[in-house]
Every structure is written in C-alpha cells, then in structure tokens.
C-alpha cells in the first residue's frame, strides 16, 4: 500500500508514539452499510501537538473513537506505543466535546477527577496530590466540592481537562473540546491546552472543525477529506513556539497557513480526494506536499 500522505521519516524525528495504518470503518446498517472512513494512515511523534481538521461529516469523530479504542476498525490497525489498540488503552485520556455529558453529575468536581485514579489503585496520598495539581493547573483550585453542573460550560471543560491531566496519559485525545463554549472562553482554553502540553510533554491529538483553532494550536494540521474519509493533506505549522491569541493570530504567516488550510477544506467539501484526477490541478495539495518537507 502506498501512503503518499504520510510524512516521510526524516532522520532525527522521534519514534512515532501513535500509528494509524490503513484504517477503514464501515458501519453495518440494517438496510445498507455506510463507509465512514476508507483509508487513513498517519503517525504521530511522541510529544507532538497535532490537529485534525475536516468539514462536518468528515468522519472525525469516528476516527477519534477508533483511536480511543471505543470503536473497532473494519480494516487496518492503530498502534499506540507499539501495542495494537483493541480497547481503551491505559496510556490515553480523552476529552469529549460534550463536557456536560462526560462528567459524572452525581460526583463532585474533585471526585470526578479522582475516580479514574482510584481505579488505577493509586495510594490515597498520590491521588490527593495529583488531583490538587491538576485542578490548580486548570485554574480550578477552589471549586473541589462543587458539582459539575454548578459550573459554567468553560469551567466544566476545565474539569474534564483536569481529569485527563491527572490521569497522566502519554497521549491526550481531544474531540472538538471547545465547540460548545463561547469565543472568549475558547481562547483561554486554547492557551490552557498549549500551556499544559508544553509543561507535561504529552502528545496531543486535537480534533476540530475550526481552521483558526487548528492552525493556532497545532505543530501540524492533518486535513481530512469528506466521508468516506482519507487524509487529504498534512500541513506543517511553522509558527513560533511561543504563541498568544493576540500576536500569533495577527502574524502574516498565520494568515497564510489559515488560507492554505481553508482552501484545502474547500477542496474537501467539493469532494476532492488524493489520487482523484483533480489533485494535480489543485494548488492546495501541492502546497501541502511542499510543507511536509519542512515538518519538524
């Protein structure tokens, strides 16, 4: 199988922590089968911050659920830290879009963060310090006793992030985590994710439909085609490591990258797929191929 969209293994690139190889997902329906994902192949290096964007209906959630081990793939495999993913793997934490539905409403904020740690059989003292640190890291040091539904949407998503952080994952999956919060909170949370990523050295796979968000957050943006999904392009984001909402977003390079990804998304919406006849006529793909060499 040829995998033209995979970034070439250049010397000095850290070994991949997560590999998605030829993944296909067909939903078995009553009347007919629906092929949501056709052939996805990419790999993520340890410590990398990768964003996956695609138009709505691009099978983003399907992909993420497969990576999280919540869905079985029809073909292909997903390998995390050298082991094939067959169920939710230990070294992975997920932050869901529906924060209101992914926190246990009958537990307090603290209990929510602590529950997975109890399940790991960590001693009480370790749990306490992990929970305290995680809640402090997301700026929620003073709401331990509250129930999630007593908090605003943004704060609830902070709790979910704290839970993921306390779990000490090697890979953090985020499924459009900020799609349902207001614009200002969104900016704050994006910066929070960047800060946590830097501090913890965790590998982040961030799924979003927001082009700005993808470019702002990622070191690399993978653009998906419409369903049945394949990788349309893999764009390296060569913005300075130190990013902030005001300056980074007004950089000319940010605008260029944004335009690039935007054009790719438009192509995707038109149904352009790699290997289809249009490909060579589309400048976007060429750009994408171009930027790959500059990745990492």
């Amino acid at each position: 199988m040829t995998t033209p969209t995979t970034p070439p293994e250049t010397p000095g690139t850290p070994a991949p922590i997560l590999e998605v190889r030829g993944v296909q997902k067909i939903y078995q329906g009553k009347q007919r089968n629906v092929e949501a994902v056709r052939d996805l192949t990419f790999s993520i290096a340890a410590g990398e911050m990768t964003c996956i964007v695609g138009p709505s209906g691009a099978g983003k959630t399907t992909l993420l659920k497969c990576v999280a081990g919540l869905l079985d793939t029809t073909a292909g495999e997903i390998v995390l830290e050298g082991e094939r993913v067959t169920g939710p793997p230990r070294g992975m934490a997920v932050v869901f879009q529906e924060y209101g539905r992914s926190l246990f409403p009958w537990l307090t904020v603290r209990q929510n963060v602590e529950l997975p740690l109890k399940e790991k059989n960590l001693p009480k003292a370790d749990r306490e310090s992990l929970v305290d640190e995680a809640l402090a890291a997301v700026g929620l040091a003073d709401v331990h006793g509250a129930h999630p539904w007593q908090l605003s949407g943004g704060m609830q998503q902070r709790v979910a992030i704290a839970r993921a952080v306390a779990y000490e994952p090697h890979v953090l999956l985020m499924d459009e985590p900020f799609a349902a919060v207001d614009a200002q909170t969104r900016g704050e949370l994006e910066d929070l994710v960047r800060a946590l990523w830097k501090r913890l050295g965790v590998t982040v796979l961030f799924v979003t439909h927001d082009i700005d968000e993808a470019v702002y957050l990622g070191q690399r943006v993978i653009v998906l085609s419409m369903s049945p999904t394949v990788v349309l392009a893999d764009v390296a984001v060569d913005l300075p490591e130190q990013r902030d909402q005001l300056h980074t977003r007004s950089l000319p390079r940010f605008a260029e990258l944004r335009a690039k990804v935007y054009e790719l998304i438009q192509q995707s919406k038109r149904g352009v797929r790699p290997g289809s006849g249009d490909e060579h006529e589309q400048p976007g793909t060429a750009v994408a191929a171009d930027t790959q060499s500059g990745s990492m």
Binding site: K65, A68, G69, L70, G87, P88, R90, M92, A93, V94, F96, E98, R101, S102, L103, F104, L115, P116, E119, K120, R163, Y167
Partner: peptide, 13 residues
C-alpha cells in the same frame, strides 16, 4: 448517556 459510558471506558473503569 452514551458519552458517559465512553468516558467510563476510556478512563479504565
């Protein structure tokens, strides 16, 4: 809730 079920599975309950 489906999301809550997924959450429980992801966090190894």
């Amino acid at each position: 809730d489906e999301v809550l079920r997924d959450t429980a599975r992801c966090y190894g309950l």
